[in-house]
Every structure is written in structure tokens, then in C-alpha cells.
Amino acid sequence: MTIMTLDQIINSLGLTVLTDLKDFKSLTPSYGYTSDLLSCVMSGAKNQGVWVTLQAHNNIVAVAALLELAAVIITEGAMPDETTVAKANEQGITLLSTEKASFYIAGKLWEMGLRDV
């Protein structure tokens, strides 16, 4: 599998970083996962993965922290509120945002070499 950094992902997909900046070049996500159902994510996503969802609800941070995900890409311009962003910073979770739909983002990540298994 192609190794890519979170920095490459952010730049090539034009994502907006909502949480504190980090050394994104040192982070290399190993999996991709798409779902809007928290129960599916809990059972299906693996650690150090990138989770694509249109959910901006504050529960996503808890799930991401529990699964030790590298980043959450929130699609379709959905905006988490301030407390959600603060909670993400506290837990060291990177929240990214895009106007594009989940289908497009997952399609592009797959094209870049990311897989979900």
C-alpha cells in the first residue's frame, strides 16, 4: 500500500483544518473508513485511520478518540460547534472539513491508495 502523509491528503483534497495545527507530515494514516453511523464506526474502523463522515455532532470526537483515529474528515460543509472542536483539541483528534460529499472524498482517497482493509 502507498504510504502517504496526512499533509498530502489535506493538500491534495483542499481540506480545511478545524483543530490545532500539528506536524501533519509525520502522520501516515493507514486506513480509510466511511460511515455516518457511530455503531458501525465503532465496530469497523481501525486505529490510525481516516474517517469520512458528514456527521458534525460532538459524539464523533469521543468515537475518534476511542479508536485512536488519525483524523476525521467532515464532508458537505457540515460544521462542528465550538465545544466539539475544543474537545477534539483536548483529545488530540484532527478535524478536517470539506464542502465535497463523502462519496467524492472516499473516491479520491481510494485513488491515492488508501484502503479500508
Binding site: D36, L37, L38, S39, L54, Q55, H57
Partner: peptide, 8 residues
């Protein structure tokens, strides 16, 4: 309700 796909 959210897990049923509603309440977004």
C-alpha cells in the same frame, strides 16, 4: 434515532 439514520 441517529443510528436509524435520522435526526441529522
Amino acid at each position: 434515532i441517529r443510528e436509524l439514520g435520522f435526526g441529522a
